[in-house]
Design a protein around this nucleic acid. Structure first.
Lengths: 189, 189
DNA sequence: CTTGAAATAATGAATGA
DNA sequence: TCATTCATTATTTCAAG
């Protein structure tokens, strides 16, 4: 038996059967105390730190940390553990946003579902305002981008307009967890 | 001594001193073979799986897996290990995009640096095209959003126009790693 | 939540293909 | 050069208080 906590298995690489499979959940708020928040901050910085190391930093015992983590997993605050990749080193240096406007009255979910199954997709949002869909992709080069747009996006029915925005600078705020959970009007107890 | 790999410490919660501190690197491409890719896929699904478990799934020994992972960390393909949070459960159910256009000729980096230090920031991109900056934030509610815009964004000089887009549906493509690294014209060997 | 013990895992050295 | 086995050290987990 594996020694570590087993979280519910993550989304597989298989095509989505429905949007709900991939959509970020809108779960009920879980009360978090200061220790919970600190654990989340530390894990967000390096989720492979041992519970012992966490325990040392937090001034408590390892089993106590283990129980906290288990609780956060059970309650769904922790959805899983991932890797921060350097996509550039992995051979996909380009980040591109496709800003999509749908044809009026068209089923957006059909469009979204098709985009959601494109392997190059990193994130997709249906948004309010002038545009309808904001999708971020990872591609290898211009040829890859062209292939993505021509062979995938343009073949989706109901897409009214597509604007392509290349990312010139990408900043991932790794202080989000620390910044939001710690200081300012933090989560309800 | 800690038994797990120690990756270079991640970005702290301290304010950024320069953009380079947070910007996604444009590193040289690292050759990845099939085993490397599989390890990355498995780790992206659950980075806390033990090396033994990985070894079992890959049909090799644990030390071999450990060396592979160490190499990927040293070469910078693996930048770190993080947590997938349910921000809704953590009390921040709203995702909002701010689409920002800068004043002509204004120093974009000054704007970016100010935005980068807002705790609610999740990700920021300077992009080509009609807009200049695309920034995604996490907020608790409408009041929090208003406070964010009025007290932070509006006080930044050089911002020409800001459009606020609420995310109605957010899909994180967890199959990105599997999809991109495995099947289609994968990374150079 | 803490302590202590048992099961399990990670690391490094020696070894062999 | 690369992967395996073995021994050591560290960690997770369970039980009891």
């Amino acid at each position: 038996m594996p020694p570590r906590h087993t979280v519910k298995p993550n989304a597989s690489a298989a095509p989505l059967s429905s949007l709900a499979d991939a959509a970020t959940p809108r779960s009920p708020t879980v009360p978090l105390d200061e220790v919970d928040r600190q654990i989340l901050v530390l894990l967000s910085q390096d989720s492979r730190r041992s519970q012992r190391a966490l325990a040392r930093e937090l001034g408590m015992s390892a089993p106590a940390v283990g129980e906290r983590i288990g609780r956060l997993e059970r309650l769904g605050v922790i959805r899983g553990y991932g890797v921060r990749l350097d996509w550039s080193a992995a051979g996909f240096p380009m980040t591109v946003y496709l800003i999509i406007t749908a044809v009026q009255g068209y089923q957006q979910s059909a469009i979204v579902e098709k985009i959601a199954n494109i392997p190059e997709l990193e994130e997709l949002n249906i948004v309010t305002g002038a545009i309808d869909i904001l999708a971020r992709f990872r591609v290898r080069d211009h040829a890859h981008l062209r292939q993505l747009i021509m062979e995938h996006i343009w073949k989706i029915e109901g897409v009214h307009r597509t604007e392509t925005s290349l990312s010139i600078l990408d900043i991932e705020a790794e202080n989000l967890v620390a910044g939001l959970l710690s200081t300012p009007a933090a989560g309800p107890e």
